[in-house]
Write a protein that binds this DNA or RNA. Structure first.
Lengths: 233, 233
DNA sequence: GCTTGTGAAATCTTTCACAGCA
DNA sequence: TGCTGTGAAAGATTTCACAAGC
């Protein structure tokens, strides 16, 4: 999404391409983190889990779970199920979440501050190593575990801190130039929350999460309940 | 999706089904808001736009734009292109964004406050009519254009204010019960930001935006650049 | 000339259904 | 017996390519 938009498509669409041994379909990749979360929840109940139970927790079809997991290798046991801990390890490994990825947040407004202190990043092995803002009034303020740096220092700091992922929470007007600086600074993924789309080179993974867009999509699906719009116009 | 998508599918999967005259594919619906935004940007440059230019701005293929728009009807002119203003009107109409949808945000923490003041909602015809929190210390505080109400009053207030869309920014532990109250309160869409999945009845449109999950997906795509993981284990 | 709208082809994704193994 | 892993079928989406219309 994606959103987030995601997408989704997802949702939210992004630049795609990947090679890890035998290529894993994009739709599968989008579900792996969902499985990971479902497994984390299930891990306290039982050491193993069936495709059917995992499917229920993840909100998908059991055949889909089996097909998805088969792309990672044969980690299940027929007649028994999947070993929860081992499966989580395998999924994490494929998602590259083993390796402590380093995140920078650009824009220390409400949304930027919220994300910097959001527990979901740290608990999944992502480390927020820097926050930036162009407003001198915000520079120096403590946000989460970092203190806000001036936007003008981005190019240097990104390289110095070896930032992997950039999160854009600037106003729409600054989003594209921010994305450009992030790319020049060597990040390989960008998560864009600004209410405008940005474009980046092919080799940078991009995910655009526009909250207004998410609501618009929802409001369309809502109409499955409502009376159909008159056909003519 | 961001997503979704959520989304992808995407980005963020959700409960789907819709009937408006002749059914519009889900993948198309997920792109309509993106077109809408691209059109808004383009509207100042020229009164008409070609599928090719629109495709470039939206980051998709020109044939896709034409196929998508053809689901709405024949609103283009051969040899010329699409009339920007009219096309925006048609897309908005189909997305139901004409009709001032009413949003409630549950959880007035950092993220909830950020969303309540986020410009992206209001500028797209969504009106934040209520915020809720279970913390008595937060109740009564002004957030955006509303003041925070006690979570215990949700059931009544949702009905009274005729809320259409619920946004969940509670901690993971409260997300499912919050979603249940929202459904009972008559909302027809839920946008879930809590770092856990929730389940809702078929007839409620659902979009799950987990920021950690988004980063995990991105970090996988990132590996298209990195060296392949060793095959064995 | 240029650009839409759309069948048909190609591709991707999901689901089925069952062989194979514990 | 129970559940995985996987070919094959069904379905959805994307892309191609070109006729039709301005």
């Amino acid at each position: 999404m994606s959103p987030c938009g995601y997408a989704p498509k997802r949702p939210g669409a992004g630049t795609i391409s990947s090679v890890i041994g035998h290529r894993i379909p994009e739709a599968t990749v989008n579900r792996l983190p969902v499985y990971l979360r479902a497994l984390a929840e299930a891990s306290s109940s039982s050491p193993t889990i069936s495709s059917e139970l995992l499917a229920e927790k993840a909100g998908v079809n059991a055949a889909q779970v089996r097909k998805d997991l088969s792309h990672l290798g044969s980690y299940g046991t027929r007649g028994v199920g999947y070993e929860v801990g081992y499966l989580m390890h395998q999924i994490s490994r494929r998602l590259g979440v083993d390796s402590e990825l380093r995140v920078a947040i650009v824009g220390a407004g409400n949304l930027g501050q919220a994300l910097a202190t959001y527990g979901g990043f740290a608990s999944r092995g992502f480390q927020v190593v820097a926050t930036f803002d162009s407003d001198p009034g915000k520079v120096g303020h403590r946000v989460g575990t970092t203190s806000v740096r001036p936007a003008s220092t981005m190019s240097d700091v990104l390289l110095e801190l070896k930032v992997d992922i950039g999160v854009v929470t600037t106003p729409a007007s600054a989003a594209q130039s921010t994305a450009d600086v992030l790319v020049a600074g060597g990040v390989s993924c960008i998560l864009n929350f600004a209410p405008t789309t940005v474009v980046v080179p092919e080799y940078v993974a991009l995910r655009q999460v526009d909250l207004g867009v998410e609501l618009q999509i929802l409001s369309f699906y809502r109409q499955s309940e409502a009376a159909p719009v008159a056909a003519g116009e």
